[in-house]
Design a protein around this nucleic acid. Structure first.
Lengths: 127, 127
DNA sequence: CTGTTTGTACGAATATCTTCGTAAACGAAT
DNA sequence: ATTCGTTTACGAAGATATTCGTACAAACAG
């Protein structure tokens, strides 16, 4: 079993931005981060340096302004976080999580259709 | 907006047990906890005392052996954790979370049926 | 070249979480 | 009453996360 990726709250916020934008400078990340929460520039910098030490991001330091990129796979991270959550908070029942998620995060009919399709495919494959 | 419930990892594990068992003593919780992870008794005790300070649990201290009970609603907590996760890690798309959850946490056909039913009901109500 | 801006590095203060040792209180058994 | 096992209270150490000030380097403007 691979060691689980366990980013902290703050690290996750940065990862999310990196996943969305692709390779970015500290300043770019910082500016987006600032919209969501109060933060000093060096704070963001330090966080990203730590993430680099931990291997959560890679960086290109060839130019003066370094460019950071997510080093952990988005889907893999999502999956790990979800599984942990299912285990602890939903006593192992994924469907309970699914219903809870759908119940309170108003989804469009299109999204619901997509999920329905997905369900059908899953059932086919299971045979 | 109510202040979000933000239990730590360890606190969540304890809450999960309390939700499952209902009111319990420290020893009862500790014994279950021990099956999942290494932990000293006083460690569990301290955690639950802190949770009491934070208002995550209530306790009946009338007898020598105190009895603890979850003070935060299970569904509400689940919802808040999920919403946060959807926002940060799934860029706001609940359906993406749903598919990710279903895809990797093999669910039984019964569970899938339950979800399908749930989807239908949701769509009806939305009209 | 000199001063200003923009960036990284580093270290330290602070906060929060986790763990556990030790002591005191209590009840039950001898 | 003394002892023994169980429980709570308290405090502190260790680990991890968060925040930011300061120093130094590079690029840039004049």
């Amino acid at each position: 079993m691979n060691k689980p990726i366990k980013p902290t709250e703050s690290e996750l916020e940065i990862l999310a931005i990196l996943w969305e934008r692709g390779p970015s400078t500290v300043r770019e990340i910082h500016e987006i981060l600032e919209r969501q929460k109060e933060a000093g520039y060096t704070t963001t910098l330090k966080l990203m340096q730590i993430m680099h030490e931990k291997g959560l991001v890679t960086r290109d330091a060839s130019a003066k302004t370094h460019i950071y990129e997510a080093a952990v796979d988005r889907e893999l991270t999502q999956r790990q976080l979800l599984n942990k959550m299912i285990d602890t908070v939903f006593k192992g029942s994924a469907s309970q999580l699914v219903m809870q998620a759908l119940g309170h995060h108003r989804s469009s009919p299109e999204e619901l259709d997509m999920i329905r399709q997905y369900l059908n495919e899953m059932e086919k494959k299971q045979k």
